[in-house]
Write a protein that binds this DNA or RNA. Sequence first.
DNA 1: TTTGCACCACTTCAAGCGTAGTACTACGCC
DNA 2: GGCGTAGTACTACGCTTGAAGTGGTGCAAA
Lengths: 195, 195
Amino acid sequence: MRQNPARRAALLDAAIEVLAREGARGLTFRAVDVEAKVPNGTASNYFSNRDDLLTQVGHRFYERLEPDPGLLAAAAEGPRDRDRVTELMHDLVARISGFPSGYLALLELRLEATRRPELRRLLTERIRADIQANIDYHTKSGLPGDATTVIALYLALNWLIVERLTLPDVFPESEIHRLVTDVVERILPGPRRDT
Amino acid sequence: MRQNPARRAALLDAAIEVLAREGARGLTFRAVDVEAKVPNGTASNYFSNRDDLLTQVGHRFYERLEPDPGLLAAAAEGPRDRDRVTELMHDLVARISGFPSGYLALLELRLEATRRPELRRLLTERIRADIQANIDYHTKSGLPGDATTVIALYLALNWLIVERLTLPDVFPESEIHRLVTDVVERILPGPRRDT
DNA sequence: TTTGCACCACTTCAAGCGTAGTACTACGCC
DNA sequence: GGCGTAGTACTACGCTTGAAGTGGTGCAAA
C-alpha cells in the first residue's frame, strides 16, 4: 500500500473519468492504470480492493468539489429576488452539464452505494451536508423561498441534469434555458413576473 | 437464436432483477441463467451479445409497464383539486418505492445508454412518450397546473425516488410523506391550503 | 419424419489481479 | 563525502477466475 498522495489523487481522478466513461463495469485496476498513464499494477499498489477504491473515489470526488470560495462570494452579490435565483439555477445547470464526467461518476457511485454500506454512509453524509449548506446559504442570504423551496429546486434540477446527461434528446439543448426558467418560476413563491 | 417468447420474457425479467441487485457489472449471461433458473448457456441462445440483451431489457421493461388500465380509470375519479394531485403523487412515490428493482434497473439502463446509441434511442422515445402522456392526462382531466407544472413534478419526484432508493437516509422514510406534500404544494399553482 | 428447442458438458478465451524482482531516488547516518 | 536504508516506480510474469459459446443428445410437437 503506497503512500504518495499526489499519485494517489491522480489515480482517483483517473478512476472518476473511467467511471463516467466506461461505467462501473469498466472500472478495473488496470483501466485506472491506463487512464492515469502509469504502469500496470500501480493501482493494485494503492488500493487494497475494489471496495477500497470506490470509497476513496467518493472521498476524492468531494475533496475536488470543495473549492468554491470565489464562486460563493460572487453569488452573494446582486439582488435578492426571484430572477436572481433563476439566474443562479441556470449557472448551476450549465456548470454541471459542462463537466459531465464528475456527475456521471457520482451517479455510478450512488448505484454502487446500493451494495456497499461504507460508500453509502459516506455519500449520505456528504449529500446531507450539501443540501443543508444550500438551505443555509439560501435562507441566510435573503433569497426568496424557504427550506422546502430549496429542496424542491434541488430535486427538480438534479433530475433535469440526469436527463440531460443520460438522454439528452428528451429535453433538447435548445429548450433547456426556457425549461429551467419555467420550472424555477413554478417552484419559487410569490407573484410571477410577466414574461 | 431461440424463439420461445415466454422463455425470452422470463430471461429478460431475470435480467432486470440482476441489473437492480448486482448492477451493470453483475449482468452476465450466466447470472441471468441462474436468476431465471434455467440451464447454463440458455441466455447465450437467446441474445446474440450484451448489447442485444440490454436493448431487449429496455423493451421488456416498458412492456411490463404498460398494463395500467384499471389504475388510470381509478385515477380519473375523484375531485380535481390540489389535494387530489398530492394524493396521486403520494401513490406514485409509494408504488415505485415499493418495487425498487424496476426503477434501479432503469437507472442502470440510463447509464448504459450513455455508451449504447440504440438503447439511448429506445429510452429517449419511451420517456418522451411517458412524459407526454402524463401531460395529456393531467391537463385533459382538469387537474390544476399546466404542462410545465407536470414537468416540474416529474423532475422533482424522480429525483426524490432516486434519493430514496440509493441513499435512503438522506430523506428518511419518516419524513417522506410530509416532504412530498410540501414539495407538491410548492409546485402546484394557486393558493395554498393552510395545514 | 422433420424441425426446433431444452439441456448439459466441454473448450476456449481473455481479463484482470497480485506480486516477485529490479532499479531508482532521497534522505539520514557514520 | 561516502554509504546504507527505506520507500517508491517500473516491468514482467503466473495464476486464477469467470464467462462465452458451441456441439451433441434427447425430446416433443407439427
